[in-house]
Simulated assay, not measured.
Amino acid sequence: MSEYLETPAGRRIAYQRSIGRGPGVVFLGGFKSDMTGTKAAWLHDWARERGRGFLRFDYSGHGDSSGSFEEGSIGDWSQDARHVIETLTDGPQVLAGSSMGGWIALLVARALPQRVAGLVTIAAAPDFTEQGFWAGFDETQRQALTTAGRVALPSDYSDQPYVITRRLIEDGRDHLVMNQPLPLPFPVRMLQGTADADVPVDWAMRLLDHATGGDIRLTLVKGADHRFSSPECLRLIAQSIDDVLA
């Protein structure tokens, strides 16, 4: 059963957690995904079996949390993540960020480095509003975004299109991480599938090259797609968390 936490901004965030030994693990989901997804649920069970603290939650506008998805932004969702981590966990945590959650995890790590014991990213998509959406828009779409404030894109994961707003793009530019130093002074394990149609392998290579730290590794999985949810991929995520904890 989900519990709820009110943020200082008045957003009601749904979450589920297991109390256990630390450092705990916090799962940060992707764009328009929620905490009932395969990776979040599997990792929650995995952590519970080991007596490890675990926390998963829905950003505002996602899942069971309050708000409209179309009104949200990277800044809002990173604020949600920070408040959840600061309020519901104690001490350093291992952040496991999937897709957009990888970007959110990097923003949390930049803001709260003392609360991060390690980082595991799965198909991390830092700055995707700029290097993915905006860079991929044609002139008609950019014009629609400027004049109408939104543009609809087809989704491979839902019958409903993604509505991309001007606020999402403009706010994303205020939270970029690839245009400035990115120190990660804790163990980092990056996971990336070579068959990912949403996040190119090149993004993972650029993130590896851009970040600085003494213990950063990238693992490429041949044939794995963006979901990264096969039994083998799930076990690799867990092994990466164990590696960071060790």
Rank of each mutant, 00 (worst) to 15 (best):
F54Q: 03
V199F: 02
L176R: 15
A109Y: 05
Q239C: 03
L234T: 05
M100E: 06
H210M: 02
S158I: 04
G214S: 15
V108D: 03
T7K: 04
R150F: 14
F31D: 00
L145R: 05
A135N: 13
V244W: 06
F137H: 14
G63Q: 06
P23F: 06
Y59L: 04
Q79F: 02
L153E: 13
G118Y: 12
D198E: 12
Y162D: 01
W203A: 09
L234S: 03
A238W: 10
R11Q: 11
G53H: 08
R115S: 15
L88K: 10
W46Y: 13
L5K: 03
L145F: 08
A96T: 14
E139H: 08
G97V: 07
L119R: 06
D138Q: 11
L28Q: 02
T140W: 13
G132N: 09
D209M: 04
G102F: 04
A81I: 08
F128V: 09
H210R: 10
V108C: 10
P126T: 13
G172D: 03
D243Y: 04
Y162W: 14
T146D: 14
D159A: 11
S155Y: 11
D138C: 13
R17D: 05
A9Q: 14
F57A: 02
M1Q: 13
K32A: 12
L106V: 08
R21P: 00
F128S: 06
F128L: 14
T36Q: 08
L245N: 01
S78T: 15
Y59G: 00
L176G: 11
G61A: 11
